[in-house]
Amino acid sequence: MFSSYIESILIFNGIHIIMALSLYLPFSAGQISLAQAGFMAIGAYASSVMTLFWGFPFYIALFLSGLLSAMTGVLVGFPAIRIKGIYLLLLTLAFGEMVRVFFLNFEFTGGASGMGGMDLQTNFVNVYTIVAILIIFFYRLSKSRMGRAFESMREDELAAEVMGINIVKAKLLAFGVGAFIAGLGGGLYAHYVMYIDSPKFGFLLAVEFFVFVVFGGMEIFWGPIIGTTLLTLIPEVVRFLKEWRMIFYGLVIVVLMIVRPQGLIDKKLVDDITRYAKKLF
């Protein structure tokens, strides 16, 4: 369909979108997480073990590794019931590092030498099918009761609690579903690059997802999608700048944060576009 170079960029972009959305979900409920790379690692390793060692079909392995990641997400969510803000950031960061170090030392999945030999299962179609499903999911969530609960928790947690929202349940759900999505991202990644080792899933990767979301905007799920796409494509488009291209990348982020601190896409922009589109048709 595309040249293999463009196809690979698009597939990585799709996986990045999935990861950014996995972070956006707890974010939309006011829960900051630097643990998403850890959840991704769990998804990547678990799905690889299932397909490689146990011979599971890819999609079943993908789903199960998402579930495993979700269960871990709920566990991380428990301390988040009481811990907020930068303390939660530190806690989730520490969790991500624990996962990384665990896989570095876990001989069953190759330890420091990593794990390879998975089949190429991930392609443009299945990555973007999952992205499309997630878009529908997030759209429906934003119109739903639980979506409103998340939004009000982000705005004012105490007020949300005394409005009758079970914030314990909502937080665990946000972390759990977010981790599920990250687990899917990990499984897709592992079956695309076909070789994984634990340093890939370090803290820098978590920060990268974080940047995608903040750059794109945290108010609405289109933010992380557009933000990720731009930040994945920009370094490719400006390859002619050679060693200076990452400087350009940084500059784009700095400028946007000054001009639009709320991120590229906010609710108002989406409303304006929808209204304009309705006028056209």
Partner: peptide, 19 residues
Amino acid sequence: RAIFKRVTIEENLKVGAYH
């Protein structure tokens, strides 16, 4: 007051009727 400032008035009321 603790209203949800970055949310519409209608959505504020909907959250009030959460249960």
